[in-house]
Write a protein that binds this DNA or RNA. Structure first.
Lengths: 345, 345
DNA sequence: TTGTAAGCGTTATCAT
DNA sequence: ATGATAACGCTTACAA
């Protein structure tokens, strides 16, 4: 069992001493082994094993100024959508020999700012960020590349990997209209979050393309939370019969959840009393009764792609021209939309 | 706008030069400000702002050997149960001025081992780990404190924060029995994962307490995944009528999901054709039709508590006596269990 | 109250 | 192929 339970940290120098070589040789064994004689490598590695030596990355990184850490700041780690993004980022990071420092900002721009600061102080080599609403003057660190994912602040020079929200929302609205709905409510989210804004835009465009005017009474703005979605949906559902929507489009998974709960609370059946299309797929969308029709984002790919873009930036030192990647969203038709006898206007 | 877009890193020395003080003074302004004259502090802070200086944590930590990083290794970041644990850990970490390095092992003991190595190399001050199945000789780093969460390897000397799985499972079985079920199937998970083992044990004890013998035909072992749960549940559901269970208890959220899908696939209605109790609550359990009766774990608290224990260890240098904390699980009765006409045996 | 100097554990440069 | 030596950016005795 040797000395494997040594309390004190064992360093390069200890290994060097035991192997009867200089510290530089030990270092070379780890970085550029081909420059070291086979026999010496063996001796060094024996010592490494004997002492159970592991290089101190802090020291190594200080010297090389390569932390091999990337930062990920999301708004809510408990939302499975962001969980999937995180998994995508982690997979790409691992593939590239990087590691992940993770923060969840809770949609608070100050917290977010603080986390970005901390990441910079830890000399991360890149940051992937889901910018919180309102995130103002965003990136104080021209030295570290930042990729925005899911949402964007439109900061000049910043890369972004986003969903094609406009087309996703249009597809949802088109589906609803084709099934005979004309009074379509929308839980529109926040307009200072690009996903909310773009999805509302897609909603409006979808209506416009079918010659249906936007009725502001059917547009409910709210926080991107289950509670806010519940409240907003309730308002729509409590409209008098003639002005009440026959269908609702909710722009993210939290508000969709709130909408389902609101329907349940008011005793409205989906889809017979109210049709519903959500944004973001999830297990409960499938297991719900009826299974929910949704616009599915490529969550994992969002994270994975963002990380890819980041590593490409890191590799090719020079500032690449900022790109915006849009991943397509896909309408998944299940059973939460009823076909209405169409009254052609 | 000054020189805020400097490309090259600005260091303590730059600040010192600009403020006409020594590096140590600048350092003291950041660590022990009360030792520095007010006037000097002002001059230094002016320089800090002018240069947009941020301390290099890598260097600082190398010097102090305090990385202020804790590692978290979970098995699946996309599982909302572990997402909640991660959130708990992050919250506690932030409260204590620590930061989180996150890895998701995918239930692979080799990956897990690699991540633990990496964390050690980054000089993390503690590790919170959901040990993967089979994780053999677990912690090679007596120098860094490890807390196991959710599951334990029973390694001597390691702290653990776990759910009271036995009682949770007993409560589920008791509930089923009280509703008249005697043929209760169990999707038992893996026995080399303590959660699986303990929940099966709770199942057996629950039966025993009511004088019902364990029928091995009703015990299905499987991976902790949706697919495996689906397969195992299908086998149970396809048993000939007389030997088929009237109710199923599934030991985690993934296998519960698989079980629901299996029922759906075979056209069996819950609860009229088959009653079901799951382990782990989630949004879909609530939204399902019928809403699912589950044993709810305190996921967030699991993570938060584990981190608390860890920070207590870090603070009080000396090796504390290893503790096992058990958090209670709570039966949440919804509508997935039907009451049967009881045939008293 | 402030400055000097040594050193944390590595790697890079230059010799040999 | 290997070794001496000087950094990397910071903290901390110790001195002044």
């Amino acid at each position: 069992m040797a000395s494997s339970s040594d309390k004190s940290k064992v360093t390069l120098v200890d290994v060097a001493r035991l192997a009867h070589v200089s510290p530089s040789t030990v270092s070379r064994v780890f970085s550029r082994r081909e420059l070291v004689a086979d026999d010496t490598v063996r001796r060094v590695m024996d010592a490494v094993r004997a002492l159970n030596y592991r290089p101190n990355q802090l020291a190594r990184n200080l010297r090389t100024s390569e932390s091999r850490i990337v930062g990920l700041v999301i708004t809510d780690i408990q939302n499975s959508f962001y969980g999937a993004i995180a998994r995508g980022v982690q997979e790409a990071a691992t593939e590239n020999g990087y590691h992940l420092m993770l923060f969840s900002s809770g949609e608070d721009e100050n917290e977010e700012r603080e986390y970005l600061d901390i990441l910079a102080e830890y000399q991360v080599q890149g940051i992937i960020n889901v910018p919180a609403a309102n995130a103002r003057c965003p990136y104080p660190y021209p030295a570290v590349p930042v990729i925005e994912v899911d949402r964007t602040t439109h900061t000049p020079g910043v890369h972004a990997v986003l969903t094609n929200n406009v087309d996703g929302a249009r597809a949802a609205v088109k589906h609803l209209i084709e099934r005979g709905h004309t009074r379509i409510g929308v839980i529109a989210g926040r307009q200072d979050i690009t996903t909310g804004a773009e999805r509302l835009q897609g909603y409006e465009r979808g209506l416009f393309e079918h010659g249906i005017p936007v009725d502001q009474q059917l547009v409910a703005h709210c926080e991107h939370t289950e509670e806010a979605g519940f409240a907003s949906a309730s308002k729509l559902l409590e409209l008098p019969a003639g002005r009440r929507p026959t269908a609702i489009f909710a722009v993210n998974n939290e508000t969709t959840l709130g909408t389902v709960l609101a329907c349940r609370e008011l005793g409205m059946r989906i889809p017979s009393d109210m049709s519903l299309v959500g944004f973001d797929d999830s297990r409960w969308a499938l297991l719900m009764e009826p299974p929910l029709t949704v616009v599915r984002q490529q969550a994992f790919e969002l994270g994975y792609t963002a990380a890819q873009v980041l590593f490409r930036m890191i590799q090719s030192k020079r500032r690449t021209v900022p790109s915006v990647t849009r991943l397509e969203a896909e309408l998944v038709v299940r059973s939460s939309v009823v076909a209405r006898r169409q009254v052609v206007s």
